[in-house]
Nucleic acid binder design. Structure first.
Lengths: 339, 339
DNA sequence: TTGAAAGCGCTACCAT
DNA sequence: ATGGTAGCGCTTTCAA
C-alpha cells in the first residue's frame, strides 16, 4: 500500500523552491513564473503527490463537504433520484456528500448531525423520502440547512416540495382532455391524515373537475392505503357501480398495480375499457405494467439538485419555500374517448 | 448562525487547565483526576464546545471516514439496501460514509476516488448495482478497497457476491419439493453474456433437476431480457406447448410481472394453474403482485455490512472472495401439487 | 496528574 | 515572482 505520502515540503525541497510557491502552483495562483510552475508540476507528477485535504480544510476552515441526512432511503427506493440530483449538483460545485440514512429515528438524526458538524460540513440537506412536515431540533440552526420533500411548520428553513395540487389537477385534466367524464379517484391515504400528498392530489382532482363543469360524484372517490391489495378490492367495487367510471386516477403507482389486476380479472382491458393514470412514476412499476402506465412524476432529481444549489448560493439570505411541478409522463394507459 | 466556534484553548483557559488536560478529558484518558475531569466537562458543556474533527484528523492521520463508490444506484433502486447495510456497519464503527454514485463512468469513478483520497479516507468500498466483473484502475491499490456485488478478474481485492448457483438451485428445489416436474425457466439474459446472474441461476436450475432425476427439457428453457414485456410473450409461447409447464422460474421479479400478466390473460390463475418463483425480491413488485410472489432475495444488506466490517478488520491481511447465499422468501405463488 | 511545547500539512502574509 | 514564517485546532511526547 501507500508506502509514504509526500508533503508539500518534499515537493518544495525536490523542486528547489519554497513551500509557498508550491502552494501557489497547487492553487493556480497567477503570480508564478511559467518556468517555475512547470518545474513544480513535474515534481508533483513524478512523486505522485496528493495534497492533504484535511490540512487544507484546517487552514481554510472549509471542508468542501456537505452533509446529506435522509430519513429512510431504504424503504422508498424510488426516491434515490433525490440523492442522484443532490450528488450531481455537489459535483458541479466540487463538493462531496457525507450521506447518512437516519431511518426516521430522531436520535440517529441528531447523532448524524453531530458527526457532520464535527467534520465541519458547509451545510446540511435534510431529505424526507415522502412529502411531509418535519420537526427539527434547534441544532439545525447552527449550520445552513435546506429541506427536501418536507418542511417545518414555521418555514424557518428553505425547503423544496412537489406540487401535489398541480399534479392531481394535471392528472385529472389529462383524463378530461381525453373526454372522460366519470373519473374515479383512489386516494393514497385518509384525507384527514397529516400527509400532504392525498390532500393535495384530491384538491387538484376537485379543481380540474370543477373547471370542466363535471359534477363530483362522491361514489367515485375512494380511500386506499397506497398498496395494491386494497386498491384491487376498491376497483372491483367501483366497477360494480350502476354507472362505473371510464377512468380511474390512482394516487399511487402501486395502487395502479392492484387496479390493473382487478380490471383484468373482470375481463376488462386497459385502456379500451377503462383508462388509468397513476402517480409517482415509480419506474419499475409504471414501465413494466402492461400496458405501460401513464403517471405523474415526482420531481425528486430536481429537488435534490435544487437543495444543493440553494444551500451553496442563497441559503444565507432567505428561506424560500420552493414548489416543484410534477410532470405528466405519457405512456399507454389512457384512451381518447373522443377519437 | 454559528457565532464563534470555541477551541480547545478556550476551554483550557476557561477551566484554568492546560490544553493537554482538556485533550485527555476529550479522549477519556484515565490519567486525569476526577475533579479536573468534571471541571473541564462542565466548561465544555457550558460553552457548547465541539471538537474539530479536521484538526484531529490532521494530527492523528485518521479521517474516520470511508469512501463508498457506487456504479449506478439510481437505475437499480432495490440495491439501496446495499448502502443501508454499509452505513449501519459504518455507524457501529463510528465512521461516516462519503458516498458517490459514479454512474458507471470510469472517469467519474477516478475523480471520486481522487477526491476521497485527498480526504484521507481509511478505505474504499466499491459497489456494483448488479453482479458483474469490473476492472479497477491501479489507483485503487493505494488504499484498502473492498468490492461488493462485483469482482476483478485477478481477485486481487476482497469481494462479496451473491451465490447465484445456490439461489437458482434452491428456487428450483422449492418447486420440486412441491411436486412440480415440468419446470420452465426464463433466463434474464443470454447465457453467453458476461453477467454471472443468468449463468449461475441456470446452472443451479440444472443441478436441482439432475439431483431430482428430472430430465431437462430444452423447450422449457427460454431466454428473456429481464423485462416484463418479453417475458409476457415467452410465457404465452410456453403455455401453448403440447405439454406446458406447471411451474415457471422467472430469473427476475420484473419478468415475473410479465408472466403473471400473460397467465391471467390466458384465464389461468396463480398458483392454482401455474406456480411461479421469481428472483431478486424486488419488494415493490414481489409484495404488490397478486398473489404475492415467492422469490429469492439478493443479500444486498448483508454484503454491504460485510464490506465495511471486512475493510476495517481484515482487508490488510487477505483478499477473501466471499459468497453470500440468496435466501428464499416464501409468499403465495407456489402450489403444492402433492397436496 | 498535569502543563508546555512540538508538530500534523497546508495557506496566507510579509518581506524581499 | 518568490521564500520564510506564523498559525489553523488538535494530540502526544517530555518534564515536572
Amino acid at each position: 500500500m501507500d508506502s509514504k505520502r509526500y508533503t508539500i515540503q518534499d515537493i518544495a525541497r525536490e523542486a528547489k523552491v519554497g513551500v509557498g510557491t508550491v502552494s501557489r502552483v497547487l492553487n493556480n495562483d497567477p503570480n508564478v513564473k511559467e518556468a517555475t510552475r512547470l518545474k513544480v508540476k513535474q515534481v508533483i507528477k513524478r512523486l505522485g503527490y496528493q495534497p492533504s485535504f484535511t490540512a487544507r480544510s484546517l487552514r481554510t476552515q472549509k471542508s468542501q463537504t456537505i452533509g446529506f441526512i435522509a430519513d429512510n432511503v431504504a424503504t422508498t427506493p424510488f426516491a434515490v433520484n433525490l440523492i442522484k440530483g443532490a450528488q450531481d449538483a455537489a459535483r458541479r460545485h466540487g463538493k462531496l456528500l457525507l450521506i447518512v440514512d437516519a431511518g426516521n429515528d430522531p436520535q440517529l438524526r441528531e447523532r448524524a448531525l453531530k458527526s457532520m458538524l464535527e467534520r465541519e460540513v458547509e451545510g446540511i440537506v435534510y431529505a424526507a423520502m415522502f412529502h411531509q412536515e418535519v420537526v427539527l431540533s434547534a441544532e439545525f440552526r447552527s449550520v445552513p440547512t435546506v429541506l427536501v420533500d418536507c418542511y417545518t411548520r414555521d418555514k424557518s428553513h428553505p425547503s423544496s416540495v412537489p406540487d401535489e395540487v398541480q399534479g392531481g389537477k394535471d392528472a385529472t385534466e389529462e383524463l378530461i382532455k381525453n373526454k372522460h367524464k366519470r373519473i374515479a379517484i383512489i386516494l393514497n391515504s385518509e384525507l384527514s391524515s397529516p400527509h400532504p400528498a392525498a390532500k393535495g392530489r384530491y384538491q387538484g382532482y376537485c379543481e380540474a373537475l370543477e373547471e370542466a363543469n363535471i359534477e363530483l360524484d362522491p361514489k367515485l372517490v375512494r380511500t386506499g392505503d397506497g398498496d395494491s391489495a386494497l386498491s384491487f378490492k376498491i376497483t372491483l367495487e367501483l366497477m360494480s357501480l350502476a354507472k362505473p367510471p371510464t377512468a380511474i386516477f390512482c394516487c399511487t403507482d402501486r395502487m395502479a398495480m392492484g387496479t390493473y389486476d382487478a380490471l383484468k380479472s373482470l375481463g376488462l382491458s386497459i385502456p379500451q375499457d377503462v383508462s388509468i393514470i397513476g402517480f409517482d412514476n415509480q419506474e419499475v412499476i409504471a414501465e413494466q405494467l402492461h400496458p405501460p402506465l401513464s403517471t405523474m412524476a415526482l420531481p425528486h432529481e430536481k429537488m435534490g439538485r435544487w437543495s444543493i444549489d440553494y444551500l451553496l448560493d442563497k441559503s444565507q439570505t432567505s428561506t424560500e419555500q420552493h414548489v416543484f411541478p410534477c410532470p405528466l409522463i405519457k405512456r399507454a394507459s389512457i384512451k381518447d374517448l373522443g377519437a
